[in-house]
């Protein structure tokens, strides 16, 4: 896939880090402000898709990236399951038990396991959508 013009590349350079940081903020503050894992993960995918669309990429590099995103997707959903199973064994035999201390309502590090679930679900959503996007790009590149 070819890159776009110089203007698009420069604007992408300026914007992409801000978009990425906003996604991370939405994920990590999911238990305090609107948003959460799903919304933040989708914003992070927006940053990655912007880079791929603006700069273009050859199929060889994309294959490596696809392998990485596919692996991180599988690992993050496995981590969600492991967290849930730990909750099952730590207290009360309840799946998805909130076993960590909840702390003070409104602080960044509070709410027990909720921020951890948020982070891993955000990783899962970002990696899954990125895998789908890269798979479509690779399919177009290789079927020429």
């Amino acid at each position: 896939m070819n890159g776009m013009s110089r203007i698009v590349k420069k604007v992408t350079q300026l914007l992409v880090s801000i978009i990425f940081m906003y996604g991370v903020y939405i994920v990590t503050h999911g238990h305090l402000t609107p948003g959460g894992g799903f919304a933040g993960g989708a914003i992070i995918v927006g940053a990655f898709a912007l880079i791929i669309l603006a700069y273009g990429s050859d199929a060889l590099k994309l294959h490596k990236e696809e392998a990485g995103s596919s692996a991180s997707e599988s690992l993050s959903i496995l981590m969600v399951l492991i967290l849930a199973v730990i909750g099952f064994f730590v207290g009360g035999m309840v799946f998805f038990n909130n076993y960590l201390p909840t702390g003070v309502v409104g602080e960044l590090i509070s709410a027990g396991t909720v921020p951890l679930y948020n982070i891993f679900i955000g990783m899962e959503v970002a990696a899954a959508l990125l895998t789908i996007f890269i798979a479509l790009v690779i399919f177009k590149e290789e079927s020429k």
């Binding site: 238990h31 305090l32 959460g36 909130n98």
Partner: peptide, 25 residues
């Protein structure tokens, strides 16, 4: 107070209704 999460939606999604979130993921 129960979940420690100031955002009620996230509290419901990841604490009360953890199964639903796992299904979506």
């Amino acid at each position: 107070e129960k979940t420690g999460s100031a955002n009620l939606v996230t509290g419901v999604l990841f604490d009360f209704r953890g199964y639903d979130t796992l299904g979506e993921a």
